[in-house]
Design a binder for these strands. Structure first.
Lengths: 239, 239
DNA sequence: CGTCTTCAGTGCGATAGCGAACAGAGCGCT
DNA sequence: AGCGCTCTGTTCGCTATCGCACTGAAGACG
């Protein structure tokens, strides 16, 4: 495992050949992202892209009536700001920090230049984008066909995969915002999970006790996303 | 307007500079796609990509329990088979022809080669992909927050934009599959639209009478998708 | 002309999720 | 200790959607 705050903790950066990596390195700047911080707003141009090495960032869509919906979560396996190299410059959603997060940021212009060179960076960024499409697609399916119970399990698992411990700091109210459901719906589902000894929680701190149990209880969506993400972006630990 | 079966009827091909276009031309082959035909299956490698010049193709996800959900629709503004140049080769969904469709197909290998050259083709394909991401995202939001009534309006409008006339051949049962709801739900919503003189229909043939009325009745999702698609892929008719 | 198949319309009980309102519990602050 | 804020638990009535079952109407076909 690369050392604690190395850029190599980000799976995209870690996947680059040395030459490409070193071309980016001088422009990478480590920053801390506080909880709730917004990395970009709907429709706004972004001066930087971000490569997280720790923590979670949510991609959110806010409707005209103020309802919210999470489209995907991104952690150290990805990047925030794909609209830049996709050619649109902007995208109609927000990126919000969901748990204390450290990331390397890179000036937009550098990324665009390097991307247009083709090569390994382009390849891995496109693969990540495809993984993101898969995740958004699965969110669409899950919103349509699965119960709040199942969605909560999926959401906990996706978050857990991006955190170092089995605890996450997140109130039920915030989870409800992410899932786009009522707070009470989350409370009810969480109660059931606690009764069945899968999790415990109190005042914004959720501890997962039985991860396999959660997986069993989740819908197929979690596994589908995980499988496809791992296929497209293999863990660097592979031999 | 280019002539009736010219590849230039496809917005992506039309956006290419002459040189890029002519490089593809010898490999393009016009084919007719019958209703219900599947262009690719979940997880399967695709020997061709398709550039429709007429008709509609749906991207569908089928759950383990057999429920379906439409993620996006593609017409002459786009391409079927983005997973090829995104680096994943395959994607976990199906592409199904939803209305009589003509398209130019291109061997996968040619596309990959041309894409990796960079240039205008790469640019426009990536922009189209971003538009597709927007559409999938909006589908996720719509599934979550909007009523069947609203979703039906959105769906009719998206289809209408891709057809030459104000009629579409499509049973309520099939629409229900696309929206991932019950057939009766669609029947009920359609009844209301007919009562209010927005559409008429009979045995699988829907005629739209009042398009502005539909737009008023639809949720914000239709406009959001259309705006973003037009921003990313401008109509070639623009001066 | 009668028979079949496909589409659309309807009714009914069950249920998941919604919105609003309120009660209690844990924690920080003074 | 006492106050106030945030977070969680619970209730209640309401509505949209579900699943199921059946009817009727339009066209296809022999």
């Amino acid at each position: 495992m690369p050392k604690e705050s190395s850029p190599l903790r980000n799976r995209i950066l870690a996947a680059l050949p040395a030459a490409d990596y070193e071309r980016l390195l001088p422009h990478l700047e480590l920053i801390e992202l506080p909880l709730g911080h917004s990395l970009y707003e709907s429709g706004a141009k972004q001066p930087y892209v971000y490569f997280p090495i720790e923590g979670i960032v949510s991609l959110l869509y806010i409707t005209q009536t103020g309802n919210s919906a999470e489209l995907a979560v991104v952690g150290s396996e990805g990047m925030i700001g794909i609209a830049l190299f996709m050619g649109g410059e902007t995208a109609p959603n927000r990126a919000v920090v969901q748990s204390k997060c450290r990331a390397y940021r890179l000036p937009a212009q550098i990324l665009k230049t390097q991307f247009s060179e083709g090569g390994a960076l382009q390849l891995v960024l496109l693969k990540f984008t495809q993984a993101l499409i898969t995740q958004i697609s699965q969110t669409a399916v899950c919103n349509l066909h699965h119960s709040v119970d199942q969605q909560l399990c999926r959401w906990l698992l996706l978050s857990l995969d991006r955190l170092p411990e089995n605890r996450l700091q997140m109130t039920q109210e915030l989870i409800a915002n992410m899932l786009g459901v009522r707070r009470q719906g989350v409370t009810e589902s969480a109660r059931k999970l606690e009764q069945d000894q899968l999790i415990t929680y109190s005042r914004g701190l959720i501890t997962v006790l039985d991860r396999p149990g959660l997986e069993k209880r989740s819908c197929e969506c979690y596994a589908a996303v995980k499988t496809e993400t791992d296929r497209l972006l293999p863990q660097p630990s592979a031999p």
